[in-house]
């Protein structure tokens, strides 16, 4: 299996504060990689660097090399909008736009220039099917998305991200605002989606990492302490700090 993202010697500062220190990681294609660690450890910051959402923070400075399929994502030739089209993102709090369900999903494709109604219908349907929410919403596509439950909203956000046909899906604690039933639906969905997409998921919940991920990266104080197959990390961690964390001694 090849690696879709390669990060070499990456450092990130917010003003004077170094939030990420010397990160090296290779993320394998069509798999789920979980980023775990105590809050404030830099895992979300790292995730947001991959689709360059950190660019929006005024005082941010990044050094090192991040390659997506051998392209340096910070190189001048790279258009950040095309990068974000390839690397989609799902946020912690479900954030559908205050528009109809259909318009939410169609927003991305429309932005990227698709105006043909039939084509849009097709994209919307397949994205909603992929996000396992089609059956629930097919009769109310014109209804406002804010009327849905939190779990449905989050799956709609996943559908919205899928509609621009990304290769990677970044998920920033996608279930932290949801109830257990909605959480397990999102987890099942993630496991189905990895057939087609690469998923990088920040999670606060170690059981979730064990349940869904193939690989796990443990972050602590801005450093990547350990990275490997999830089974290995949780059964025989190499680093003492990882062991302490997963056995619940801190965090």
């Amino acid at each position: 299996m090849s690696n879709i993202i390669t990060v070499k010697d990456m450092n990130l500062w917010y003003g004077d504060h170094q939030a990420l220190k010397n990160i090296n990681i290779e993320i394998p294609e069509k798999s789920i990689t979980a980023l775990i660690g105590p809050s404030g450890c830099g895992k979300s910051t790292f995730l947001k660097t991959l689709n360059r959402m950190n660019d929006l923070v005024p005082s941010v400075k990044i050094t090192g090399d991040i390659r997506y399929n051998d392209t340096d994502i910070f190189s001048k030739e790279v258009d950040v909008n095309s990068l974000r089209k390839e690397i989609g993102m799902v946020f912690q709090k479900p954030n559908p736009f205050p528009m109809s369900i259909y318009d939410n999903v169609a927003y991305g494709p429309r932005t990227h220039g698709i105006t043909n109604k039939a084509q849009l219908d097709e994209i919307v349907e397949s994205a909603l099917r992929d996000a396992a929410i089609w059956d629930e919403v097919k009769d109310r596509l014109k209804k406002n998305a804010l009327g849905m439950s939190g779990g449905q909203q989050q799956r709609l956000c996943i559908a919205r991200a899928l509609a621009v046909q990304p290769k990677i899906l970044l998920m920033d604690e996608p279930t932290s605002a949801l109830d257990p039933i909605s959480t397990s639906r999102i987890e099942e969905l993630a496991m189905e989606l990895k057939e087609k997409y690469t998923i990088v998921m920040v999670t606060h919940n170690m059981q979730q990492a064990v349940r869904v991920s193939d690989y796990t990266a443990f972050f602590l104080l801005g450093e990547l302490v350990e990275f490997g197959k999830t089974d290995d990390i949780f059964s025989q961690p190499k680093d003492k700090r990882t062991e302490d964390y997963i056995t619940g001694r801190f965090g």
Partner: peptide, 26 residues
């Protein structure tokens, strides 16, 4: 809410597109 704008940017919309197609309708 900033979340709306983040979501739009993450879909590959430019800031200007985001302001006029998401922020203004909101």
């Amino acid at each position: 809410p900033k979340e709306y704008e983040d979501a739009s940017l993450a879909l590959g919309a430019t800031p200007v597109e985001t302001y006029f197609k998401v922020s203004v309708p909101a």
